[in-house]
Structures are given as structure tokens and as C-alpha cells.
Design a protein around this nucleic acid. Sequence first.
DNA 1: TTGACTTATATGTCTAGACATATAATCGTG
DNA 2: CACGATTATATGTCTAGACATATAAGTCAA
Lengths: 242, 242
Amino acid sequence: MSLATDSADQPTLYKRIRADIEKRILTGEWPPGHRIPFEHELVARYGCSRMTVNKALSELAQADLIERRRRAGSFVRRPQHHSAVLKIADIRAEITALGRTYGYELIHRKLRTATVADCDRLGVKKAGKVVAIACRHSADNVPFAVEDRLIDLSSVPDAATADFSREPPGSWLLHHVPWTEAEHTISAIVADDRAAKALDIAVGAPCLVIDRYTWRSARTITAVRLLYPGDSHRLVARFKGG
Amino acid sequence: MSLATDSADQPTLYKRIRADIEKRILTGEWPPGHRIPFEHELVARYGCSRMTVNKALSELAQADLIERRRRAGSFVRRPQHHSAVLKIADIRAEITALGRTYGYELIHRKLRTATVADCDRLGVKKAGKVVAIACRHSADNVPFAVEDRLIDLSSVPDAATADFSREPPGSWLLHHVPWTEAEHTISAIVADDRAAKALDIAVGAPCLVIDRYTWRSARTITAVRLLYPGDSHRLVARFKGG
DNA sequence: TTGACTTATATGTCTAGACATATAATCGTG
DNA sequence: CACGATTATATGTCTAGACATATAAGTCAA
């Protein structure tokens, strides 16, 4: 017993089953609440074993497209309208991907014992030493973003001696610190005097702000604020939902 | 042959295997590039069948934490630093979740044949009729966001007769249109005269803008621009990466 | 040294079963 | 009719195999 009902199976069978169902959901043929055929029905339709259709349905459940209920069956979920995948690229990668010349400039670097404000920003009770960095990224010699960063040296001691005059701290951290988790907060402000000068825009011009707080297994790594000219930069997020 | 080496298996075995490995990656014990034990090694360690460890590893690969290479093994991926899950909640849900009173007000509603600008905004060559809506959301009677929306009636005919004076178009669409895909663009602007009046903020105050373009299987559904006061609203995105 | 060929092996997919478990539906009883 | 006990069933997890396939590594010839 094997093989499917129609068409050559270039992709593997479970992928085809998954794609078939996903298509019916996305076209609206199977609206939210609709019961997906039972596993044993799909087994019959595709002429395969239950593990195969189970793998397809499990992946759909993982992607939140369907909900699986014991004894009841699998149902198309109501779209969530809640989560989108936001691509926040490394700035250098983002600029070079646009075919523009990346420029980097260290404005300020200071090693100091953490102030109360620093601790607050890093979300720690008491920190030892930190590195505070201000720098600017540019595309084709036009200011692209200014970065204001704090690195917790008790988590990343090597950062004390790293040369941030050549390499942006973001790239350096990316290569020197393994997997982390982070939280981004996006907001809008108007450029004050200092920001306007750094970004070469008018005082009062809109700016997009990304605050990123990064940690690894409960240890703070770094906190950074990125300031972009609001009219020239955009964040794009794709998603599936309602 | 069954059961694992240590501790009671409250979660199922494959979940425990996945969690074990994920923990070692996230703590840095297994840095990027590190080779995960082969499936047959994990089979021996956990005393289970290969399908069980395969399921654990497959899920880790799906989450981009590891990369699997035939003949070579499975490796901890270099963190991507690229994608974050951004929660963009339904405005009503967002406000009520904060324990505040949601308010809605229809400012403007017009049914018209699509202008060139409308078609451009909807990303279609030529549209028939559209509904243009302007409305305002408030929290505890304080303006929270203004919405400027276009709905393509050739895709959603029912929207022509829907009563948007009571129900926000976002909620209505959520309940009347099945699964869709969307693209969000986030940027910053300063409030012009009209926006300032609608949001009860000063002209020139920063605003966060979300432009959302929604479609279902190649058919445009709606395009909407949401304008938030930039200092009072924040978008938060969690992620795992570098 | 280099390039072509062969081989070994880890993953990718799949099977035909199994038992566990949550729960919808049914049945019985007060 | 309301409510508790029972049963049927769809999913959840797992096994012990199988063959396919991409490819790293080794082999050999030019």
C-alpha cells in the first residue's frame, strides 16, 4: 500500500498533505471552525500510514492553523490577527542587501562602573562594570541610524577589550555571544538637538526607535537603542492570520 | 526497551529531549557550530526509538535552532538576529486587556468607485467599488489610534452593507473573512493638523504608523493605516536569536 | 596535486502496528 | 429532567523495523 491519488509527488507525501490542507484553509474553502477530515479518513484518501498524516497535521497545529482536540477531531482555527514575524536585520546586512555602501563610525566609548540608570536600563539589581557605546551607521555616507548601547561586562568580559572603532558592537556581539533571547520595543519620537545632528535631519523630525534588551539564560547581555529617521526607514512584518 | 535515564517524565519523552537540547543551546553550553549527538547516540542515551529523537530534532530544526545535514549530523545554528515575533493585537482586545474602557467612533464612511490612488494603495490594477472608512479608537475616552481603511468590495461584497457605525471594521473583517495573509510596514511621522486634532495631540508630535495590507490567495482584501501617538504606544516583539 | 569514482553513514521519510489519554456521546439512575 | 458513570473514539506518543538520498570521506588514476 503506497503512493497518492494524483500528480507526481515531487515533495514528500506529508508535505503534500500539509500543503493541500493549508491551501484549503487559506483560500477560505475550509473556513474557521471547519472540521478537517479525521486522520483515518486522510489515511484512506492518501493511502498512507497514520504517522504520515499525523506529521502533516502536527505541523499545521504547530503553525496555529488548526486546533486538534482529542476525540473531537481537528478544526480550522479562527485567525489570530496577533502575531507577525518582524525581520529586524543586522544593520550592516540590511544596508549591503540594498546594494548600498555601509559606513560605521564610533562616536563614543566609555568603560565605567554601572550607574543606577545603567542598572535600570539593563534590568539588573547591581552591575559591576559596563561599556557604554554610541555609534552611527550610514548608507552611502548618509546617516542611517544612531546606536546607543550598554554592554554588561559581567556577562561579556571580552567586550572590555574589543575594538569597537572598526567593528560595530552589534556585529561583534553576534559573533562572540551564542544564542540569546531578546525583547524589542518599537516607538516613535521626534528628534531632539543631539539626534538631529547625529542623523543630519531637522530638529522635530520623526524618528523610529527600537529598544532592544538582550539576555541569555537569565543573564543580561546588552541593552541598545536604535534611532532611525522615521521617514526613510521602515520595518516590515509578514504574517498569516486575520 | 523504554523509559529514560533520570527524573520522572511528566512531559512526554520527545519534549524532554527537545527541552534538554534547547537548554544547552540557550545557555551557551553548546555554542553555534557545535555538533549535536547523532540520532543513534541520543537513541542510546534516552533508550528510545529513532523516531522519537527524530521528532525532537525535527522540531528544533523547524525553530531554526539547529541545522541538520545529511551524513554530517546536526549542528547548532548561528543565531539569526533577524526575525522577531511581533504581537499586533486587535485594538479592542489590546485596550480591554489593559483593563481600560474601549471606545469606538466612526468618523467617515464612503462607498465609491476606486480612484487611481485607491488602486495603488490596494495594489490592484483596476478595482470596482471600494469602501473608505475613517474611524477612531479610544481608551478611557482618550484617543488611542485613528484608522484609515480601504476595503475592496469585489473581494468582500458584504462590507458594502455592514454597519461600521457600531462595530470597528477590523473586528468585522476578522469575523467575516477567513484566514488571510498580510504585510505590515511600521514607520514614524509627525502629526499633521488633521491627525493632531483626531488624536488630541500637538501638531508635530511623533506618531507611530502601521500600514497593513491584507490579502487572501492573491486577492486584495483591505489596506489600513493605523496612527498611534508615538509616546504613548509601543510595539513589543519577543524573539530568540543573536 | 587534482579530479573522478566509490563507499560509508546520518538524516529523511515511511510503515503497520501498539497502548495511553482526554473527552464527546451515550446510558442509567435518582 | 438533571447528573453521574460508562463507553467509544480521535488524537498523542511510541516502537522496531525499512528503504531512499545526500554527502563527507576515502580511493585511485591521470
